[in-house]
Design a protein around this nucleic acid. Structure first.
Lengths: 143, 143
DNA sequence: TACTATCTTGGAACAATTCTATTATAGAAT
DNA sequence: ATTCTATAATAGAATTGTTCCAAGATAGTA
């Protein structure tokens, strides 16, 4: 928490709302949506607006400290984990998990693609059914 | 074209609007959005509505003949290509290309992930810069 | 303690998509 | 060929997620 605050000192204004957002995002592996963030911050700051949530998200994206996860067709999810990684989506409960394996070395593309594109990156979405959903507890998590 | 029509005979009503959509989608590798489809069909049927476009998209998705591509954070793209494949996105012009290499055999996941999930599939997004965008003609394609 | 650039807020605006009620029509039945 | 009916097309309203805006508030500097 002190770490979070000192990290941003003198960079952008640390308002109470922003501190709450930063705390919520710190080590958050749940891939929250803007609404998830809003609902969390609202517990402590009931008058917080979506504008503040989106503004802060944008500020963090601009600083490269948050990335947008475009997996869910309905809404954007956000990910504060800066370590490059892939995702695994449970097709029953839709939760998004992280995969930290680097597959770059084995993703050999055909020559004609390499000639056509200068490659800069890759991202893999794995699909599966998580253990909770397999053991019949899925209703707890379905969205 | 005759092929398209015979394929759907007796399955769902082949209206002129739907036939135009099917023709536009047939062998279409451009990953069109609903608006792309709407604009195309409107050339021939100026009174076509978005509802018809979305209804037809839904009907095709229900029949497994069209998939949704969730890459663009702004809007959905659609892909009539049933052959399993991956995508490559030019980070300059945002065009989506197809990659038909099957990487399943080399995507070995850690044991703890395999224990947690029953895997059902994967999809890779490659990022790069296409040749047009490299040679300075990118403005033609930027969106 | 005062200052000011930046932030927060509520609500309006916007864009993509879905829904609804009405009218039209494809394809089956006659 | 004509009628019938289930399904489709349409215009526009509604909904959802996100962005914008103007006014008041405040963090951090001076």
């Amino acid at each position: 928490m002190e770490k979070i605050i000192s990290k941003y000192k003198g960079k952008f204004k640390l308002t109470p709302q922003r501190i709450a957002i930063l705390k919520f995002l710190d080590n958050n592996t749940g891939h929250p949506t803007a609404e998830d963030i809003y609902n969390e911050i609202r517990k402590k700051y009931p008058t917080v607006s979506f504008a503040t949530v989106y503004n802060t998200i944008q500020a963090l994206k601009d600083r490269g400290e948050l990335s947008e996860v475009t997996i869910d067709p309905q809404r954007k999810h956000f990910d504060p984990n800066l370590r490059p990684h892939h995702h695994i989506i449970c097709t029953v409960c839709n939760r998004i998990g992280d995969i930290f394996t680097d597959f770059s070395a084995v993703l050999h593309l055909p020559e004609e693609i390499l000639a056509e594109y200068t490659l800069t990156g890759n991202h893999i979405d794995f699909y599966g059914v998580c253990s909770e959903c397999r053991t019949g507890k899925e209703s707890m998590f379905q969205q």
